[in-house]
Computed example of a mutant assay.
Amino acid sequence: MGKARETILEIDLRALEHNYRYLRSKLGPETKFLGVVKAFAYGSDSKRIALKLQDLGIDYLAVAYVKEGVALRNAGVTKPILVLHPQAVNFDQLIEHCLEPSIYSPRILRAFLKTAKKHRQKDYPVHIKFNTGLNRLGFWENDVSHITEEISGGTELRIHSVFSHLAASEDLNEVDFTQKQIETFDKITTQIDHKLGYRPFRHLLNTSGIINYPEAQYDMVRSGIGLYGFGNEAQIDAELKPVATLKTIISQIHRIEPGESVGYNRAFFSNGYRTTATLPLGHADGIGRQYGHGKTYVEVNGQKAFIIGNVCMDMLMIDITGIDCKEGDEVIVFGKNPNADRFAATADTISYELLTGISQRVNRLFIGD
Rank of each mutant, 00 (worst) to 15 (best):
K187T: 13
M220E: 10
L204Q: 08
L240P: 04
K241Q: 12
D237F: 03
A216W: 00
G209P: 05
A238D: 05
M220G: 09
A238T: 04
T189L: 07
F201A: 11
L246V: 10
P214K: 11
T245L: 02
G231W: 01
F230C: 07
L204D: 08
T248C: 04
Q235R: 11
D237I: 07
G229H: 03
V221T: 10
F230Q: 09
D193K: 14
K241H: 13
T190W: 14
N212W: 06
G224Y: 06
E215P: 00
I225S: 10
D219P: 03
A238I: 00
S223V: 13
R202T: 11
I210P: 07
Q217H: 02
L246W: 06
D237Y: 06
K187Q: 15
L240Q: 01
Y228R: 01
R222Y: 06
I236R: 00
L227M: 11
G197S: 04
L246N: 09
I236E: 00
Y198V: 15
T207S: 09
G197K: 04
E239Q: 12
I188R: 05
D219N: 13
Q217A: 07
P242L: 02
G229L: 03
L205H: 10
K187W: 11
T245N: 06
L196T: 15
D186V: 11
F230Y: 15
A244F: 10
H203Q: 09
L227V: 13
P214M: 06
T190R: 15
V243W: 09
L204V: 09
E239D: 10
K195L: 15
N232Y: 12
A216P: 02
L196Y: 09
K241V: 06
D219Q: 11
I225D: 02
T190P: 01
D186W: 12
Y213I: 01
P242A: 02
H203I: 07
G226V: 12
F230D: 06
N232G: 01
H203C: 05
T207F: 05
D186M: 13
E239Y: 07
P214R: 13
G197T: 08
D237H: 08
D186Y: 15
G229E: 01
G197P: 06
T245M: 01
N232Q: 13
F185S: 11
Q217L: 00
A244R: 09
V243T: 07
H194K: 14
E239S: 05
S208W: 03
I188K: 08
K247N: 08
G209L: 01
K241W: 08
S208H: 04
G209Q: 05
I188T: 09
M220S: 13
Y198N: 14
G197L: 05
R202M: 12
T245K: 12
A244K: 06
Q191H: 14
K247L: 15
R222L: 13
I236Y: 00
H194A: 12
P242D: 05
N212I: 01
T207K: 04
T189V: 15
E239P: 00
L204I: 08
G226I: 11
Q235K: 14
T189P: 04
R202D: 04
G209S: 10
I211R: 06
K241N: 07
T207Y: 01
